[in-house]
Each structure stands twice: as structure tokens, then as C-alpha cells.
Design a protein around this nucleic acid. Sequence first.
DNA 1: GCCAACGTTGGC
DNA 2: GCCAACGTTGGC
Length: 180
Amino acid sequence: MGGLTNGLLQANYNATSVALFFCGETMRYWLMKSEPDDVSIDDLASFPNQSVAWYGVRNYQARNFMRDQMQVGDGVLFYHSNCNPPGIAGIARVSSTAYPDETQFKKNHKYFDPKATHETPRWFNVDVQLVRKINLISLNDLRSHPELESMRVLQRGNRLSITPVDPAEWKFIVEELAHA
DNA sequence: GCCAACGTTGGC
DNA sequence: GCCAACGTTGGC
């Protein structure tokens, strides 16, 4: 069946890949930490559109990932941090490009930044939308897989709240470890 | 609540 | 632009 069809599909796929490559729109993957006391996976599931503005990032590296690299549709590993047990609690997606984080302008808000103005905002966020909740993949689980040993979140001293995830790591986690 | 690791601030 | 002091993160 279908050497020709397969060939055409292959050609089509390659053309698409090339087009995406030259548009710089290759899909990326991210791990994003949230403290469940602040926003948990169940909170996310309860929000309108099951989506949330990822406000409160006050680290330049993490900000730059959102502002400069994230595209709608990017894959997100929703990670519960500063809790017991920590780990990946769900699969999500980037559902907006970056826009100014409103909390930076709100006096008395925890995340108010006196140096930020509407003309020159300092902090940005994207929207993140739930794809599906999964059984928690604990930090200990993640550490037990050699395939994941180079993940940023597993490195000693890691504190960055948003880190890129390798496509191979994403594939392994989503296909082998993530169960509904 | 401890504390190692790391990022930011600000005086010089 | 150095770097000590300070603040924050986040697993444990």
C-alpha cells in the first residue's frame, strides 16, 4: 500500500518542516513552576478557559523566555513547587504571546514594581491553558529516569521558574510517564 | 523552619 | 565594573 502516498506525505511533511524552520516557529517546550498554594493544577482547571496569566515572574531569564521565545501552542509541563511532594502535575500549552504583567503596576500588590511604567513595562507574562491533568510525576520519579538526567529542573541549585525542555525529554515524559 | 544556591542591589 | 551584603527559592 501506497509507496507513492507515503512519498507524498513525506514530501509534504518535509516542506512543512522547512517552512516552519524558516519562519522560526518551531514548537518549543517548557517547564513552568507554580506553587500550588498560589495556583495549583486544580485551580487552573477551574478558571475560565482553564487558562491563567502567568503573572509574578520577576527574574530576567524567565521573563526573556516568555517575551522572546514563547509561541502560542508551545508545550508546558505544569510543575508544583515548594510543596510536598513537588513534581509535574499536568500538561498545558502556551495560549498567548507575551504581554505586560498587570501586577507590576498595582501599588500594594505583592508584585508591584515601582520602576515599571505602562510606557516601559519591565515584566511580561503569557497565558497558559490546561491541556490535561495527570497523576503527579514526582521530583523523585523524574530523577529515577536516566533519559531525564540533564533536565534543568533536576540540576543542583536550580531555581529558575521557567526552563526549556528538550523535545526528547518532552516526548519521554508525555508518552511514557504522563498518565491521566 | 533550615539552609545551600543563586540573583540582585548599591556603595565604592 | 567589582563584590559584599542582602533577599529569594525551594527541596528537604
